[in-house]
């Protein structure tokens, strides 16, 4: 990332400041006692004013209220987020920073102001605007931008019942080296393949009934449906059938960009693998490649490909 590009992004982000960010969005459900009970259970809050009608009646509230810190809960989208056309300000801002590699996100600050307590039956509407965008800044997590939004919550009569200032950090993840122990053991169907890799062989599954090769390993022949199979050891010669050059999102531990190809094996089936020992921009369809066993960023040996010598 050059200074110029950072400045340009910072400038572009300023265009969002002071403008609507999201909403107005009406809560899916009114404030209700079952969710209040779930919340107080989850928080371990045993104040009976949230759950005991007769106690709450005698309190200053005159009835059950929701915990103040539940302000932002009622307008959450739920497990299945609403579909977006990608053109709303939030989607545009997020894709703008994501595109520059600031793919990490963490909440850093939350300030809530309560105008009144929420009661069962209140139907909230939230609208938000971008208050400020600052950055790029160096943080413990990596370089990033702080995005502060101001949410205003209104009830069914339009009265403002609360406000929330929420700040997130969108950051470029620093790249921790994944541990070798993170690698899962191979499933039964592909154990022969990984044992081959350890032995320095590229083993390709072959149907014992019709002789058709297949990769990646799977239990059934796609051609004759036989479950019987053995394997051949590939010669390691092939050519690039298709490829991509990966720039973003950044993959922890890897150097970018890198090329990933679909390689046609001389024996007849295809396999996906990294193309290494070459400038990614020099990879071409039809290029001859040869097998090389090389460690990936996790220290795992993988069959990879380099230009044929």
């Amino acid at each position: 990332m050059t200074q110029t590009a950072s400045r340009t992004l910072a400038e572009r982000l300023q265009e969002f400041v002071g403008k609507p960010y999201g909403g107005p969005t009406v809560a899916r459900d009114p404030v209700n006692e079952p969710m209040i009970r779930h919340l107080t259970d989850a928080l371990g809050d045993r104040n009976p004013v949230y759950t005991d009608e007769s106690f709450a009646k005698r309190s200053v509230h005159g009835g059950i209220v929701a915990p103040a810190t539940s302000l932002q809960v009622w307008t959450m989208q739920g497990l299945v987020p609403r579909r977006s056309d990608g053109e709303d300000p939030q989607s545009r801002l997020m894709s703008m920073v994501d595109a520059e590699g600031y793919v990490g996100v963490v909440a850093t600050n939350c300030e809530q102001i309560y105008h009144r307590y929420l009661r069962p039956g209140d139907l909230l509407t939230v609208s938000s605007e971008v208050e400020s965008v600052t950055g790029p800044k160096t943080t413990g997590l990596g370089e990033g931008y702080f995005i502060t939004t101001l949410q205003t919550y209104r009830d069914q009569s339009g009265e403002v019942v609360g406000e929330m200032r929420f700040r997130i950090l969108k950051f470029k993840p620093s790249t921790p080296k994944p541990k070798k122990s993170d690698i899962p053991p191979p499933p039964r169907d592909s154990a022969f393949f990984w044992e081959g890799v350890e032995a320095g062989e590229l083993r390709i599954q072959r149907c014992s009934s019709c002789g058709t090769l297949r990769h990646p390993p799977r239990p059934l022949c796609w051609k004759c449906r036989s479950k019987e199979w053995d394997f051949i050891v590939a010669s390691g010669r092939g050519e690039v059938y298709s490829f991509v050059v990966h720039h973003r999102p950044e993959v922890p531990g890897r150097t970018h960009p890198f090329a990933v190809a679909l390689v046609s094996l001389a024996e007849g089936t295809r396999i996906v693998g990294n193309v290494i020992d070459v400038d990614p921009s020099d990879v071409r369809i039809g290029m001859g490649v040869e097998l090389v066993f090389a460690d990936n960023e996790r220290g795992r040996t993988l069959p990879q490909w380099r230009p044929a010598r």
Binding site: G44, V65, N109, E111, Q112, Y117
Partner: peptide, 21 residues
Amino acid sequence: GVLGTFLTDWVGEENVRRFRT
């Protein structure tokens, strides 16, 4: 939210006006 519970247990839930974290 746990901090909020701590605060309202102490000062009474009817008295909190602003809460920043």
